[in-house]
């Protein structure tokens, strides 16, 4: 939809400046169109970040100024009270710790297990290969709710409620990760593997020292998705944690907000949101390129 559509072909540029009336009219029209385009993209871009700006700003407001009308964009008297209260008056530090532990383990083991599976689907021939691959891809269309209800009961049975395994294990492998790694690894030439085998490398060594290092871009993309998925995960952590000390950040924050039905402490909530959002933003800034490639590569994550 590039409305200005690269008009600068030489034929069309001849006579710029004079031109007939309709040509001049067209130029005005194009300039107007380009102005509208700028307006659209800039307004949408500002709208994209405004709520986060407000969240950040409000986290430094006292209660009175957080509910002031008209809304105050900049806190008149910035205070760190909300952050202090968050870490001393609530279990926020524990939620943060739980989120770090859960996301850390999922981030290390998830891409590893998915790459191991992706590797053999890309490079090996074995019994039931196609059946298995289709079955793994098929898990992508199953809504989370279908497994949540039984998982709740299974975890109750196994005494796993309020434990790390319940928050971690279900996310160590996924159809999306296996698919992404398989797609990328099938582009790596077989010669490299054969050469390594002739040199006497074992199977795991080939995977670890050749395939993994060569798959860094795909691993980075998968890492970003895995991080965001785990850090922002809500439904399962919500139902398998009943003790406040075992909650993760999103659950802790949501439940905290739910308890303030009559007098919302915006400053406190927004301080909680700011701390939770910061790592995601850092990961994004550092790995933006891979994130975009990942979406374009698969068009599947959603």
């Amino acid at each position: 939809m590039s409305i200005r559509g690269e008009v600068s072909t030489p034929e069309l540029r001849i006579g710029a400046g004079q031109g007939t009336r309709s040509e001049r009219f067209n130029r005005v029209l194009e300039r107007a169109a380009s102005f509208v385009i700028y307006l659209v993209v800039v307004v949408f871009a500002l709208l994209s970040v405004f709520p986060f700006f407000w969240m950040f700003s409000t986290s430094f407001k006292d209660q009175l100024s957080s509910i002031a009308y008209p809304p105050q964009l900049i806190p008149p008297e910035p205070t760190l009270l909300n952050y202090e209260d968050l870490f001393t008056g609530f279990d926020y530090f524990l939620w943060l710790k739980n989120s770090v532990i859960v996301t850390g383990v999922v981030l290390v083991l998830g891409p590893l297990f998915n790459s191991m599976a992706g590797y053999v689907f890309a490079k090996k021939n074995f019994l039931f290969k196609n059946v298995l691959f289709v079955a793994i891809l098929g898990t992508l269309i199953i809504p989370e709710q279908v497994t949540i209800v039984p998982l709740f009961l299974i975890f109750a049975d196994w005494n796993l409620h309020n434990t790390y395994p319940a928050l971690i294990f279900p996310y160590l492998a996924g159809g999306f990760g296996v698919f992404l790694m398989r797609q990328y690894m099938s582009t790596i030439p077989d010669d490299l593997i054969d050469a390594a085998r002739i040199d006497g490398s074992g199977e795991f060594r080939i995977f670890w020292q050749i395939m993994l290092p060569l798959s860094k871009p795909a691993l980075a993309a998968l890492g970003v998705f895995t991080f965001l998925g785990s850090w922002n995960n809500f439904l399962l952590p919500l139902i398998v944690t009943t003790e406040s000390e075992m909650r993760t950040l999103p659950v802790g924050l949501a439940v905290m907000d739910g308890h303030m039905e009559f007098q919302t402490r915006w400053g406190l909530i927004m301080a909680g949101g700011t701390v939770m959002f910061a790592p995601a933003l850092v990961v994004y800034v550092a790995f933006q390129r891979y994130f975009v490639q990942g979406i374009a590569l698969t068009g599947l994550k959603g």
């Binding site: 994209s48 970040v49 709520p51 986060f52 969240m55 965001l228 850090w231 922002n232 809500f234 999103p250 924050l253 949501a254 949101g273 939770m276 959002f277 995601a280 933003l281 990961v283 994004y284 933006q288 994130f291 975009v292």
Partner: peptide, 10 residues
Amino acid sequence: FVPIMSSAII
């Protein structure tokens, strides 16, 4: 892209 980085909760 900034909004998708944040959780639905935020």
